[in-house]
Design a protein around this nucleic acid. Sequence first.
DNA 1: GCGACAG
DNA 2: ATCTTGTCGC
Length: 217
Amino acid sequence: MHPWNLSPAQARALQLELAARVERQDRLGPLRRVAGVDVGFEDGGAVTRAAVAVLDFPALTPAAQAVARVPTTFPYVPGLLSFREGPGVLAALGQLEALPDLLLCDGQGIAHPRRLGIASHLGVLLDVPSIGVGKSRLTGWHEAVGPEKGDWVPLWDRRGGSEVIGAVLRSRRGCLPLYISIGHRVSLATAIELVLACTPRYRLPETTRQAHRLASG
DNA sequence: GCGACAG
DNA sequence: ATCTTGTCGC
């Protein structure tokens, strides 16, 4: 929303401040529209293409969409993903008539070294409920997950740790699990329920799939 | 010093 | 993320 052109060190310092503003309990209003946000790149990374796909909930039918193309200004640095993809996503969201009731982001929420992955970062800046849906692990440790859809195990801050920073969820049989974590204003239990409610058939939530096709393929 | 490391 | 065909498994 504001400081996007920072040095890695400044970015990390900002993350610590914003992380203190993350709300880990449910604070949701009526859930009518859920949005998936995703980012792709063009020209070898020079251009960031961000997309937002809004679906009616719980029908998961198309409601609105937006795509924004902005110059890429930050490199990919593990732990600082939001500083690379955030500007584009905000531009896309700004094209919508209204903000959705919930944001499902590609990447982590608080399952992050400083507890401020892209889902939490966007959620706090916009003060909108958000959930982190990562396809792989950034940090944390977990036991093996069961094979059935809906099976999940807690994601701990570290091996032998005591802080639960997310959930490793089997969203579909025979597929790799998803890394779910609180973004902002949504508890982990609710986050798991909502992700499953948005994932009727494939590994990824329908929201994310739609956003991905707009941003890439 | 070594290994790990969202998209 | 992106560059890319065929191939293995439910």
